[in-house]
Every structure is written in C-alpha cells, then in structure tokens.
Design a protein around this nucleic acid. Structure first.
Lengths: 332, 332
DNA sequence: TTGTACGCGTTATCAA
DNA sequence: TTGATAACGCGTACAA
C-alpha cells in the first residue's frame, strides 16, 4: 500500500550509465540510439518500475500529441459510440486522450472546455456541446475545436444533416396517417436547431401544423413535457423527440397512461442509442451513426493539428431512419 | 481559428509589474497578496486571456489534488452513476479529475491504469476493474487504488455485498416457484465472483441445483449464451444475469423466441442501470446504488491521500432488490 | 512581495 | 551514427 518513491528518468539513466536524453530517446522509439543500448535501457527501466511521466512530457514536448474530448453526459450512450470512434483513431496514432464531462443542463460546458484547454490539449473534439456558437468560437481561438453533429460557423465540424433526419422522421409518421405530430424539442439555443427546423419544414410540406413543445435532455423532464401534451386538448397521435433519452421519457409518460407505443401513440427518437435497440423498447429512431462521427472528428482533429492555418474543415454524414416498434398506423 | 500563442503566467506578471510568484498566489486564492493587487492581477489575466496551465501546476505542485478515475466502459450507465458520485465529491473539493476508459473485455485495464499513473494522479478510483487481484495490487504499490464494488485484499475498497444481492435475486425467483434458475455469469476471475457464489449458496439453500453458464459483459454475447440455455435440454424458467447489460442480452434472446419476460421467462439483472427502469423493459434487478458507491469511493480516496500509511480503508454498502416486470410466477 | 530552486521530461546543439 | 550537455516549458514552494 505504501506509496513507493517515484522512479524518474534520471534513475534509469544512472543505473544504465547513460544520459537522461538517451533514455528519453529510447522510450520514444526515436532515432539516435542503437538497438542494443535501447533494449538495455528499457530492460533496466522495466526492472526499476519506471514509466515516463506524461505530465512532464506534455510540458516539455513539442505538442500535437494530445486530443481532448468533451462529452456532454455519460448516461447517454450515443456519446459512448462517438467516443469509441474517436478512440479508434487516436489510440493507434499513439496520441493521448484527455476527457472532460459536461452536464446535462449544459451549464458545465464552459468549465469542462476550460479544463481541457488548461490540460494543454492540442485540439478538442466536442460531443454534445450546448454552449452558444460564440462561446465555442471563443474557445476555439485558444485551442481548435472540432464540433460533432453541430454546425458552428468557422469551427471545424463533423456535420450531420439534422434537418434531413427530422424530415425522415416526420415523413415516416405522416405516411402512417398521423396528422397531429408533436415535436419534443431540445432546449433553444443548444446548437442543434436543425432537428426543429427540419421538423417544421416537413410538417408544412405535408400540409400539417407544427406543434413544438420545448423540453430538455433529461428523460424525466421529457416525461413531464410529454405528459402535458398527452393530457392537453387535442393530444398528438405521434411524438417526435429530439433525442432517444427524451423519447424514453415519452415512453415513460405513455406507459403511465396505459398507451401502447406504436398503437395508441407513435414515438420516434433520434440517435439510435444502444438502448433504443432493446427488444422491449424497440424505439423507432434516427441513426446518427455515432462511431462514424467520432472517427471523422478524430481525423479532422489530426488534420487541424497538422495544419493550424487551414480553412475551416468539415465532413458530412447522413442520418438514417430506423423503423422499429414504436411507430404504427395512426388511430382512426 | 488561428491558434493564438499561449499566454503564460510570466506575461501576466510582466503586464502587472509583479513577480510570477504573486500571480500564482493570486490565482490560487492563497494567502499573501492584498485584495487590491489580487483583483488587478486577475483583471489583467482576464484581459490577456490567461488560464493557469494545469499540466505545469501538476508537475510543480505538491500533489494530492488529482484524482484518477478508471471506468470500465462508457456504454454501461451504472458506471455513469458511479462517476456522478465521484464527481459530486471531487469537484467541490476543487481537485481535478482525470479519466481513463477501459474496454469491455478487460484487456484495456492495464493500459488505462498505466495512463492514470503516468498522469500523476494521486489516487485512482477503479470502477469495473477486471484485472486480477495481483495486478491491481501491483498498481496500487505505485499509486493507491480504491476499488469500487470489488473486494481485493490490501486494496482500499467500497465493498458492496454481491453475495447478498445475488441471494436476494435467487430467493425472489425461488419464492415465485422457479426451480430451474440459471445464472449467466461474469467472466471468471474478473473479481466479481461474489455474485456467482451468492447465487450458488442461495440455490443450495433452497434445495435447487445451481446451473451456471459463463458469459461476458457484452450484451450480444449474453444473448448468445442465453439462447444456448433456452434452446438446450431442460431450459431454465428463470435467468439471473450478472449485470443489467447481460440481462438485456437475455431479453433479446427471449424476444427472438417469442417468450414474454415475466410470463414465459423470468429475468433478473444486477445494477439498476437507468435503462432497466424503462417502462418497456422494467427489468427486475439488484440496485447497486452506484452514485452512493462513487461518493464513498471519492471520500476514501481523499482519506488515503491524506494518510498514505493508514491501514486498509473500506466502506460497505448493501444492494437492494428491485422487483419490476420481468419476473413472475413460474409457469406450471 | 520577490528571488529562485525545484519537478521531469524533451529537444536543439555539439563532440566523439 | 552514437551519445552527452544544457536549455527549456510553466507553475509552485519556501527562504529571504
């Protein structure tokens, strides 16, 4: 249990009878040391229980080897998908990853980004940022940001066509005969307005009246907001939620009222989180392709680091509607 | 977009006409600077866009202010609960948090812990570690580890009575008249053997024959393993899965076979992850009280840091069975 | 309040 | 090529 004194590079160098610099070279696989000496140094380091100190390395190093990842919330596993994608690119490149987690209400975003910046990350991949555009732009003046699934002027981004995703959802519901289709919206100004505008556009195109209820990222809040809709006058026969978590909230509310999803009430989510695939849930949803987004973001991040002055970098991805059990013909 | 040159403490000091040391004191809210000077320094820092470099601070500082958190997997939201608990204790104490994420198969554990150690964290909270006891003990010789929900000799731990949790699950099922109750086990040697031994003990106590099928943390794999059970001779009427994710796999398999959970097949999970609460799922499960575990772990971590030579620190927590819809009377 | 010795690697420069 | 020397990065802590 007792914490052993830290073994430093100096210790290894002394033991091996070489300079500190040479130990550094050996550990980094850099050129400038013979294979034999390198092997000997590593063996000694191993014996001493030495591990290079990343903190010191980051302070001393030339930079460009650390990627920061901001994640909105650990409870929503679409973010885990994105993270997996990022990791799949960053780890093989032997760069290190620093994570910061925000809060569901978005109030922790600024602090989390600040933590990242102060951790000397060379670039930040922002997943689920809710900060206003200008605030993100401000951060990106200090350290480049790659926004995932969000389109912020002059900020690198992996863009997904939220409008198209929302349109697909609405068209699916309209095709099933639904007329009163409500949208349970993300908080205004969170930067993901495309889902709302896509919904509105698709509704108008179908000759239907948009009906938007503002909500949040909290499942419990979404349940409350959905309940208000369902208990109000002219309840909707279908609800399109801005993300899967909110859709689960809608299902919670439906369940409380004895409404059978897909029969009495159709529900569509957004993300294709792994829980939406649970057979008992079988949520119809729009697949964001999270892992793909994460990979693309990590690639953009690498590109930005190597070309700091390049024009804005973007990549686009198209969401796909996945029809499962929570949507069905409109009750007649 | 263009990345501005890094503003250092030196820059602020020069601009304010004071020493670097004083700027450091001002930014840390430490004693030794007048309120007026402090305000002036902070204002200048603000204007210059200065933010103290955490990396340099950690290298220079006395230590004891950084907590590392190992998390097995981001897709399992019981870990998110634990993380929330840790954060609720660490953030108010103004310590910083460094995260490392493992892999579902446990092969990434060693690397993740190593990353933490090399990041100069003063203590590691390990959530969902699958590494063998000896390996964890080895790590804890370099940096103290607080294991969550796992009992490793000589390693600090927040212990939860896995045996009791498993017993409660089995007793619940036996009480419903089930005789053929199978256990879908966690991988052997992952350190959470209590669930298996509790199951076996409870089965014998009830005069039933234990039946253990080895599985993994992967939902898909659990579905396959459950399928083998259900399609084999004398299929179980109830399955107790080692965690919720695996239980979801069981539900997947049941669904594929047209078996209605709680009627044709009873299923119990472990964790009370937020998705187990979904109405469409309504998984009967054992509540691990994740957030509570996380808080306790963070408290132990703080204690360990302040008393490096103290005896082994432990805290105990009791799981609770939560009966929902996936369990019901045994088919006659 | 200030000066200054750290902390621990990395990298440019130089010698063999 | 192989290796050594020394400066550097950015705060922190303690003596002055």
């Amino acid at each position: 249990m007792r914490d052993v004194k830290r073994v430093t590079m100096e210790d290894v160098a002394r033991e091996a009878g070489v300079s500190r610099a040479l130990v550094s070279i050996a550990y980094r696989d850099a050129a400038g040391v013979s294979a034999a000496t390198r092997a000997r140094i590593l063996a000694i380091g191993e014996r001493l229980g030495y591990a290079p100190d990343q903190v010191a390395a980051r302070l001393a190093g030339v930079g460009g080897r650390t990627v920061g990842v901001f994640i909105q919330d650990l409870h929503n596993d679409v973010f885990a998908d994105v993270f997996d994608g990022v990791r799949a690119v960053v780890e093989p490149a032997r760069k290190s990853l620093v994570m910061a987690v925000g809060t569901l209400d978005g109030r922790g975003d600024a602090a989390a980004l600040d933590t990242l910046r102060r951790s000397r990350v060379d670039v930040i991949v922002g997943v689920g940022l809710q900060l206003p555009d200008v605030a993100v732009q401000a951060v990106s003046r200090h350290v480049p940001v790659v926004a995932v699934a969000r389109d912020i002027p002059s900020v690198d981004a992996v863009i997904t066509d939220n409008e198209a995703g929302a349109r697909a959802a609405v068209e699916h519901l309209a095709g099933l005969g639904h007329r009163r289709i409500a949208f349970l919206a993300n908080p205004p100004g969170d930067g993901y307005g495309g889902r709302g505008s896509g919904y509105a556009a698709a509704m108008r195109a179908a000759g239907l009246a948009p009906r938007v209820a503002s909500s949040s990222y909290l499942r419990a809040q979404a349940a409350i907001d959905a309940a208000a809709l369902l208990d109000g006058p002219e309840p909707p026969t279908a609800i399109f939620a801005h993300n899967d978590q909110a859709a689960f909230g809608v299902l919670d509310a439906a369940h409380d009222r004895g409404l059978v999803p897909g029969v009495d009430l159709s529900v569509v989510g957004y993300d294709n989180s792994s829980m939406s695939r649970a057979p008992g849930t079988a949520l119809t949803t729009v697949d964001l392709h999270g892992a793909e987004l994460g990979r693309a973001a990590a690639e953009l991040a690498a590109e930005r680091v190597s070309r700091p002055d390049a024009e804005r970098l973007t990549r686009t991805s198209a969401p796909t509607l996945i029809v499962r059990g929570t949507t069905g013909l409109a009750p007649s």
